[in-house]
């Protein structure tokens, strides 16, 4: 464990907590894409298949349980909670995420480290996570006023993978531990997708103006 990876995990955890706080306290999911939340639930479900078979550490298991529990409960809240679901802008959140899932599945079957069920599912989860934010970014561009919590959520979610890239560099340099090039490229694509959001978010924060993404 190194500082980049720990801060990456904590940033990821913070993003989930910010989102849960928004949904649970103000009972609103305005501006949040259910499609992105469903994709993240899929990411964790396919990445943590080995949660009970391969024990890595207590920390690892606890964090996996937290990510699984929170991602599925957010999807449940947005779909079934009688108050929260009313604030879900269904008409705007129209990204057909099946068009993301299928190509990721095909790619995972073709480009993977080892052709085993677990490894293909793990690779699939990497590809899905790389593009999972797209429905949310599309929704942000459609909904004019982005509230602070939603902006913070997306920022933290993007920052965590950027910290993971630093972690991979650090581990390669110090532990001679390499992560597969699939992980590198997926992580890079994922972080680059946030590039313009980061630009507008940091600018709005510096100029202390409301976050507005160009249409």
């Amino acid at each position: 464990m190194n500082i980049f990876r720990l801060s990456g995990d904590m940033t990821h955890l913070m993003s989930v907590i910010v989102l849960l706080l928004k949904i649970h306290t103000i009972k609103s999911c305005a501006g949040i894409s259910l499609k992105t939340q469903e994709l993240y639930a899929l990411v964790f479900a396919t990445r943590y298949l080995d949660i009970f078979t391969d024990f890595v550490s207590v920390y690892n298991t606890i964090m996996k349980l937290i990510f699984l529990a929170t991602s599925f409960s957010i999807v449940w809240y947005m779909r079934h909670h009688k108050i929260v679901r009313r604030s879900y802008d269904k008409e705007q959140d129209t990204f057909r995420h099946l068009f993301l899932i299928l190509p990721c599945l095909i790619l995972a079957l073709v480009v993977n480290e080892k052709f085993t069920f677990k490894e293909v599912m793990w690779t699939f989860s990497l590809y899905v996570e790389a593009v999972a934010i797209l429905p949310q970014l599309v929704l942000l561009q459609r909904t004019k006023n982005i509230d602070n919590l939603t902006g913070q959520y997306v920022f933290l979610l993007g920052a965590y993978r950027a910290l993971y890239i630093l972690n991979w560099i650090y581990r390669y340099l110090t532990e001679k531990h390499f992560v597969h090039w699939i992980t590198w490229i997926s992580g890079l694509v994922q972080t680059l997708l946030y590039a313009d959001f980061f630009y507008y978010y940091i600018n709005s924060w510096k100029n202390n103006v409301r976050l507005q993404l160009p249409a």
Binding site: H12, D54, W122, Y164, N167, E175, H177, F178, H180, T183
Partner: peptide, 10 residues
Amino acid sequence: EEEEDHHDEL
């Protein structure tokens, strides 16, 4: 000898 990635990360 570089160690294989055993997916010990989240």
